[in-house]
């Protein structure tokens, strides 16, 4: 069995003359939780739209479970569950009726499974309420329930915790991790970097329609510059001395500290001591996903 459940190859989408997505190629491995990140307008939703055969690519291809997905041939999507942006619901039907309606699309989904899903997403007490009267968080839960109903092999989620309260977000994160541990592949687009960092194995970062980084999170963060933080009596003077050192890419004073990138902590200590400054405290830190993201996209996630 091919280990790649989702593969896109040089996907391209233009809206008139506006480039929305340019040469997006990514691979999602079976059983992984894949994070898809990017600032607003970077092309995430457009990419997901092409994967779900809602948008026609101008170039490139989408392959799901080894089969090509096109506007006219989207059968592989039967193995996919998705929640894209605002959930799609029939507002004049109850939560239970919405799920029962969707269950007709798949064989062997019993009313018991519908009740099970309502419990999973925490809507069992409002199952008989019309979906149009739900709050945005409740609609999001119902949308997630619809995506999970047929126990898909691949779950594609675009901002699944939108509108949810912190408890709901926490439950959703736990649910996604549980599903991934049980073998489901999850493709998650989210603004919440700490959430992605907590649950994703791999990420792709999109900026202005193109992928700027892709791979295992630990490996990507490992490539980032370690920051050495030293507490010194004269941070400004220390920063000026360190900037002149070969290999130093950045040195700046920050309160009582000097922050240095480009050389290891031992080299920082040797340099400072040889210039008559003995640091009181030296620590090292690796960048987190937010720093990596900001460094690559140059923009605020919000």
């Amino acid at each position: 069995m091919d280990n790649i459940v989702l593969r896109t190859a040089k996907l391209r989408k233009y809206f008139r003359s506006v480039k929305a997505v340019e040469d997006v190629s990514l691979e999602v491995h079976r059983g992984s939780v894949f994070g898809f990140l990017g600032p607003n307008g970077s092309g995430k939703t457009t990419t997901i739209g092409m994967i779900l055969s809602l948008l026609r690519p101008n170039a490139g291809s989408v392959t799901l479970f080894g089969e090509s997905v096109t506007l006219g041939g989207n059968f592989p999507l039967r193995r996919v569950g998705s929640l894209m942006g605002l959930p799609a619901l029939v507002p004049y039907m109850t939560a239970r009726e919405n799920l029962l309606l969707m269950s007709r699309l798949y064989p062997n989904i019993s009313p018991r499974r519908v009740d099970e899903v309502l419990e999973i997403v925490g809507l069992e007490s409002v199952a008989k309420r019309n979906a149009g009267r739900f709050s945005s968080g409740m609609k999001q839960r119902l949308g997630l329930g619809i995506a999970l109903l047929h126990q898909p092999e691949l779950l594609i989620l675009d901002e699944p915790t939108n509108g949810m309260d912190p408890a709901g977000m926490h439950e959703t994160r736990n649910l996604l991790r549980k599903l991934a541990d049980a073998g489901m592949t999850v493709f998650l687009s989210s603004h919440l970097l700490h959430e992605v960092e907590q649950i994703c194995d791999e990420v792709a970062i999109l900026s202005q329609g193109s992928i700027v980084a892709q791979g295992n999170i630990a490996a990507l963060l490992g490539k980032g510059n370690v920051t050495v933080k030293a507490r010194v009596p004269s941070p400004e003077e220390a920063a000026a001395i360190l900037r002149a050192q070969p290999g130093v890419t950045e040195a700046e004073a920050n309160g009582a500290y000097v922050l240095v990138k480009g050389i290891p902590s031992e080299a920082v200590i040797v340099c400072l001591v040889s210039n008559g400054m003995v640091p009181n405290e030296v620590t090292t830190g690796r960048p987190d996903l937010e720093e990596l993201f900001l460094g690559l996209t140059g923009s605020d996630i919000s």
């Binding site: 779900l52 055969s53 809602l54 506007l71 006219g72 041939g73 989207n74 059968f75 592989p76 999507l77 039967r78 193995r79 996919v80 569950g81 998705s82 894209m84 942006g85 605002l86 799609a88 619901l89 029939v90 507002p91 969707m102 699309l105 619809i146």
Partner: peptide, 15 residues
Amino acid sequence: WRTVNLLVGHGAPRF
């Protein structure tokens, strides 16, 4: 309501 998106996105052939 995007209900047509929902069905297409879950593999319902457009025609």
